[in-house]
C-alpha cells in the first residue's frame, strides 16, 4: 500500500508516493537524498534527526509519513540561501561549536526553531531548546554561545 503526500521541504513543494510506515527521516534521507539530517538512535533520544516542521523542532525519526501531509518542513540544507550560509551557521563556525559535526544539523534546527519564535532567548531558554540534542564530543558551551549571538530576526 502506498499513500500520496503533498508537503513543502526547504520552500519547495513536493508530491510523492510512499509507504505509510515510512518515517519522515527515511523520506528525507532515502527518497529525497537530504542526508544532512542524521540518524543516531531511531527512538527520539539523541536529536540528531531534528528538523523544523510547521515551525517546531521535531525528531524526524518519530514522525510517520502520513503526518507530514500538508506540512512545511525545513532541514539543515534549507538554511543556506543564495550560496551564503545562514548567520546561525556562521556563528557555529565562529564560536567553534562544531567538532565531529554529527549532532550539528540537529543542533542547528533546534536553535532555528527557538530563534524563529523567540528572537532574544535567555541562556536558560537556549539550553532548554537543545536539551534533546546530544553532543558527545564538543561540549555545549560553544553551541550556546553561537545561538545566543544569533539573536534578532533570523528569517
Amino acid at each position: 500500500m502506498t499513500i500520496e503526500l503533498n508537503f513543502t521541504i526547504n520552500e519547495k513543494k513536493i508530491t510523492l508516493k510512499t509507504e505509510p510506515n515510512r518515517r519522515l527521516l527515511d523520506i528525507l534521507r532515502q527518497e529525497l537524498n537530504l542526508t544532512g539530517t542524521k540518524e543516531g538512535c531511531a527512538i527520539g533520544e539523541c536529536g540528531a534527526c531534528t528538523v523544523v516542521m510547521n515551525g517546531k523542532a521535531v525528531n524526524s525519526c518519530l514522525v510517520l509519513a502520513p503526518q507530514i501531509n500538508g506540512a512545511e518542513i525545513l532541514t539543515v540544507e534549507g538554511l543556506e540561501k543564495d550560496q551564503r550560509l545562514h548567520f546561525l551557521q556562521e556563528n557555529f563556525l565562529k564560536h567553534g561549536a562544531v567538532q565531529c559535526g554529527f549532532c550539528t544539523p540537529g543542533m542547528l534546527m533546534s536553535a532555528y526553531a527557538l530563534l524563529s519564535k523567540n528572537p532574544n532567548p535567555t541562556e536558560a531558554e537556549v539550553k532548554e531548546a537543545i536539551a534533546g540534542n546530544l553532543c558527545r564530543c564538543t561540549g555545549y558551551k560553544q553551541i550556546i554561545d553561537a545561538i545566543l549571538e544569533t539573536e534578532g530576526d533570523i528569517k
Binding site: 537530504l34 542526508t35 544532512g36 539530517t37 542524521k38 532541514t75 539543515v76 540544507e77 538554511l79 543556506e80 550560509l85 551557521q89 556562521e90 557555529f92 563556525l93 565562529k94 567553534g96 562544531v98 559535526g101 554529527f102 550539528t104 544539523p105 542547528l108
Partner: peptide, 15 residues
C-alpha cells in the same frame, strides 16, 4: 576556523 566547517554546518558533509 575549521577547514571542514562549511561541510558540517551546511549538511553537505558525507559520513
Amino acid at each position: 576556523q575549521r577547514k571542514d566547517g562549511y561541510d558540517k554546518v551546511s549538511g553537505s558533509a558525507q559520513y
